[in-house]
Nucleic acid binder design. Structure first.
Lengths: 198, 198, 198, 198
DNA sequence: GATGAATGAGAATTCATTCAT
DNA sequence: AATGAATGAATTCTCATTCAT
């Protein structure tokens, strides 16, 4: 019969395959691994399938569209992050900085940011999540530090931006083999945080 | 996702077409425009050709491989940057910050960083250039500011990293529609620079 | 266009699932609806399942192969037609014409004729049914009209062809948004029938 | 690089490959042949390529999208038809009927009508062409016959509908192996036309 | 009765690249 | 200096079908 995909507006998000399938989890793991080690551009159903020694169609069975797949990885990653951060009990500016400066987490986030330029679904999710996470981190900052020592016009949100900016830049550059100034940058951040110690 | 055949058998780097051809320049302009407005993933010989209303083969005539094309854009862009910065006479910390925080320049740089994950040639060039530019900026910083006010263990390279980190993060997030904390982050940077004013 | 695997290894026609299951009937209803509204090309086990919010495998449970499914719809539709026509008591040429010119019936028939090009099972069934229905309609025509008024060499079968031809063409063209000459064509048919009134 | 077809709204209709290429013509020929012999559902770039012993990509080189390909066949076919009809000098009702009752032409037209259900571009073209051709045939009818003999409310457009309806139905049914009543239907048409002879 | 998992085949496209002209 | 023709490999996605549960 003819089924030439005639009006191919995929509905997507019709999740087939139970949320708890082991295969589903394996796929997500592999996508995450690929994104970190080779960049989002390496995530294709073929490639993922080959790495896991399954068929590309099976990837599509669990994630009808590539957007579904990528979004699932993103959502799972922020879920995991939230879970870890709650478990960790962040009770000092130093432990907070460790949270910002998590290498694998930032590497993944950077890939998603690059992706976001072409994928609206991803972009929207990232914007939302970034907004929220900035909020909760600012709260933590307010609790753990004496922000009155910051210059005028500078609140916890701004500090959050600076911290994540440095953390991500370090991770991104390390990925490219660049390290010049990294230790010094960390020193600057640390003394900034020391200064804010209540 | 990626289906651009990442390598196969390229003769590469045999540059045909004089360096000064007007067509060559038009192609480079278009690639740069595409990278900034739609991301590096939109740069294909087909697409570039279509935008310029020329034939894809002509793109390959000037730039045998895609690596050649992208590298040419990168090299030209740092050349242009160097040229502008020399012309501008950076004589204050404020004018130096403006140099860091140039939106179009950063947008292009961010695309190249994303690209660097899959293109070794680009990665190497970026690493080299980043190292050098960090050096020359640190020199400028040393001249224009009183770095003795920085905490122990923090030199101009570290400051360079912080500045570029904040600048790039702001540009990247704006691209995604995120602005929370941006003004405050700029305030923090500015008061840091004020503090260093000799 | 067509990528539905037209044959491969089907066991076929081993009908599982009782003839009277409600689910079975729902599936047939949906297939008929899809054929009329979107064309036979939209009839896939996936699509049918999605519309009914059941699993594709369930469709295959009742109808092992797509041929089985389509054939079942066809057979049911002629059964239904026969039933209705008997109930309706066709006792005038006008009521007979209404039988020919039934829009939904013709729309379905047209889809099956298009299908018949690629599906031998369907083709054979259609040929058989068309032959028979033509026979029984000719009988009706003979009873209801004075065929001696037809020109030499023209019997009830030929008249049957003309009537179904006009009816189907009108329905087909309406589907495409064409109406030029339609009212006039109906007038021609009606005066032809008037002329044959005994 | 990633070029995962990110926003795949193809622009289409950017015709590459000169209008006069021999390969281009061969492709169109083959598509027409396939449509007539196996139905439009058999027209896939793969299949066409296999028949001609060329690569699927070459089909896409000349006709970027399947719509382009099908539309090109349709446009060429009506061009050819117009050309032939002009050359033939239709000067009697009998020669006009032969025009209506052209087997290969009708077989192709029927496939396009089936196609039109799913392809808007085709549907629009067919609607337009049908409207126009009906007009020019009605003109011919008016010239060649004494339409005052038609019943009230019946003009040349209606007659055109009846003629094409019968012609197409005969062709369609022959394709399915049905012939019952065909000769008689032709007799009916012929005596109708005889009746209108001026 | 029903379904989840998996597969293999095939569809439409797109792309980088080569080569002869 | 430019281009038309052609290819081979990749991409995303859809489908019919099977099978174990």
């Amino acid at each position: 019969m003819s089924n030439r995909q005639i009006s191919s507006k995929r509905k997507s998000s019709i999740r087939i395959g139970s949320e708890t399938s082991a295969t589903r989890a394996k796929i997500l793991d592999e996508v995450e691994r690929l994104m970190i080690s080779e960049g989002y551009a390496s995530v294709t159903s073929r490639r993922v399938a080959k790495e896991l020694d399954i068929k590309p169609s099976l990837v599509h069975y669990y994630f009808p569209t590539t957007d579904d797949l990528l979004l699932a990885v993103w959502l799972r990653s922020i879920e995991t992050q939230r879970f870890h951060e709650e478990a960790e009990a962040i009770d000092s500016l130093e432990s907070l900085w460790r949270t910002y400066y998590s290498k694998s987490r930032n590497a993944l986030a950077l890939e998603f940011m690059a992706l976001a330029n072409h994928r609206k679904v991803i972009r929207d999710q990232i914007a939302l999540h970034t907004h929220n996470i900035r909020g909760s981190r600012s709260e933590l900052l307010s609790k753990l530090s004496d922000l009155s020592k910051l210059p005028d016009g500078c609140g916890p949100d701004g500090l959050s931006v600076v911290l994540i900016a440095v953390a991500r830049t370090l991770v991104m550059e390390e990925g490219l083999g660049i390290t010049r100034g990294h230790d010094e940058a960390i020193s600057i951040v640390k003394s900034l945080l020391d200064m804010l110690e209540p």
